[in-house]
Design a protein around this nucleic acid. Structure first.
Lengths: 365, 365
DNA sequence: CTGAAAGCGCTTACAG
DNA sequence: CTGAAAGCGCTTACAG
């Protein structure tokens, strides 16, 4: 909150100095500016600006001449100067609180995929929704940097206060969430519900009747969606999710372990446990081992996400794959208006079942 | 490489339109500028600028008056305008190719810790060192954004071409590496060697004689350092690392599994295996399980990094903790010149041993 | 210690 | 279809 006091102080201190080298851009002729291009092409800088911004009001011949000069000199407009004039930067922000490193990294990679070659850059901004200064922090971040727009993964995406704030200050935003929370132009929907429904069908098909479920953090919308889709699928299969066999987890390994132990202590013991994410499923695997149970012979354990941990544990987890990176790419393209460059598979953001070795039929009693 | 063609086209298309609302900064009075502050404080903008940049050439009384106005209006200088005038942005870049999500996220959090409150922001830039356009990409990224500086984690930090390029174009940089590769002002040293030496001492102390080692990717300097420190410690303990028991891994779970199987097939079988990172150690655990071996009763398995996976596997891994986030914070502070704000523990970046359940004495033959 | 002028590299009205 | 002027919000010389 304090005034940004930067080390550039030296510049001012040196008011009487004379030996500064201007920041040191040795190593090469200075980069061309719009003035250079205008002069070289024999036009005004405004016309160059029109070409840069793809204005239709430029004669083809003029445009081609200018583009040739631009290409020859490898000119690229200065985003800072452009931003200052536009009153808006060419930065997009990712504001997030998802604690899973793999999710964060995949999402970042996806966003980067989406802005590649566009001249935009990605500024990362982890946050804490429970902080008293949370909204002020977001506002300061967005306004100070004059962000072009922001992408909000869960659970930040589910916070209506953030969406409202962004609308008020006129910042573009895309919310990534498991359900449609906003106008379509602001949403990328993850359809977690379909994923867990697929898992429900899988367990039904294997013949399980007594099934335990571990929910994620209630503050994440996905927790409820994953549970809802699963319940629907069980009903579809003629079963019902017994509320006694639903325990509250926290999306962490430790919570999975604790919840797993709780479920395995119940009578009758469930023959399958569906954890709200892989992390917790890995915890259940530990609980099963401690209880002396074989997976999947004695117990089926399945997860959700298909992050790396799903393949690092033993046995490898049957889980639901969510295409995080793909979702990120589409979100970024939508944000900067680069969508529909190519025909997209509309199903590319839908989660799907991956069967590995941790699921099997229930033990024959 | 193409000219940045942004969607801002609309702005130009609208040359004849009149209904644009200027980007929509409704929702609040416009933010104060340096001119507002100057007028309000009854001074020139240059003097306000001096206060912003902490110039000593301002009378105390003047400074206080200006600071009061700044505080009252919550004024913060526009980084874009400031950057344009400085010919340098307030962005720092993280250029990296480390494939481990947890490392990446921890490092980002550390860098963010280091720049918090400074007005700087973090722009992430994953890259591929083997790409033919790698150096050009880095150069374009740094020059186009006029980055204030960059932080280079391994293995990018180990690439002399990058350091040379950065020096040439006058960009500040900090290299994070396991050994001193550059002048101290450009380095944060991780001392991986000390970490693996500690692990060597641990295994010696437990009484192991026949020890297998799985190296990381040879393209990472840490691979060699981790091996070197380990060998030294064994020699210290009167042992010698048998080259036949050193196999080449790739820092991945799969490579750990394959290397583990190779080592367990040897005669005599090693009683302990030290993998160059946790990921590979988890793979070794799988190999041990497939071979019907109990850990640690039949085989000790240890790793390096102390990432989350170390606690998610069974048994939890004895490993070396590396303070990634702390290292990141120190790197960022050093880069922006905010170091030494407080006295630092000089050992805070040194890795240390964490003993869990995967290590024990060798089986009595 | 303080300020008026010029400039950073772009774009927005306004003209033609 | 094209351009000259003014401006985005700061800082750098240069004066005093």
């Amino acid at each position: 909150m304090t005034l940004s006091k930067t080390p550039l102080t030296a510049a001012d201190n040196a008011e009487s100095d004379t030996d500064r080298e201007g920041g040191g851009l040795e190593g090469g002729r200075k980069r061309a500016t719009i003035n250079d291009i205008a002069r070289l092409a024999g036009v005004s800088k405004k016309t160059v600006s029109r070409v840069i911004n793809q204005s239709p009001f430029v004669r083809d011949e003029t445009r081609e001449r200018i583009e040739a000069v631009i290409a020859e000199w490898g000119y690229a407009p200065d985003p800072q100067a452009r931003g200052l004039a536009f009153r808006r930067s060419f930065l997009i922000g990712m504001i997030y609180d998802n604690p899973n490193p793999q999710y964060v990294v995949n999402m970042q990679l996806g966003l980067l995929d989406g802005i590649r070659g566009s001249g935009f850059e990605l500024v990362v901004h982890p946050c804490d929704r429970s902080s008293p200064t949370f909204l002020l922090d977001v506002r300061t971040f967005v306004e100070r940097q004059k962000l072009f727009g922001v992408v909000l993964p869960p659970s930040v995406s589910e916070d209506e206060r953030v969406a409202k704030l962004l609308r008020e200050i006129g910042c573009e935003y895309i919310r990534i969430a498991s359900v449609e929370l906003d106008k379509p132009e602001h949403m990328i929907v993850g359809h977690d519900r379909l994923g867990s429904a697929a898992m429900g069908a899988h367990l039904v098909e294997l013949g399980h009747k007594k099934i335990g479920f571990i929910t994620g953090l209630p503050s994440f919308r996905s927790s409820h969606e994953r549970r809802g889709g699963f319940e629907d699928a069980l009903i579809e299969g003629g079963l019902k999710l017994d509320p006694d066999y639903v325990v509250q987890g926290a999306y962490t390994f430790e919570s999975g372990l604790a919840c797993g132990e709780a479920l395995l202590a119940m009578t009758p013991r469930p023959t399958a446990i569906f954890a709200g994410n892989d992390e917790m499923a890995a915890g259940v695997l530990q609980a099963a081992r401690r209880a002396g149970l074989q997976v999947p012979a004695d117990l089926t354990v399945v997860g959700f996400d298909d992050f790396q941990i799903a393949q690092a544990v033993w046995p490898p987890l049957t889980t639901i794959h969510i295409p995080t990176r793909e979702v990120g790419r589409i979100a970024a393209e939508k944000l900067i208006g680069a969508a529909a460059r190519e025909k997209r598979d509309p199903n590319s953001t839908i989660p799907y079942l991956v069967v590995r070795e941790s699921s099997g039929p229930p033990p024959s009693v």
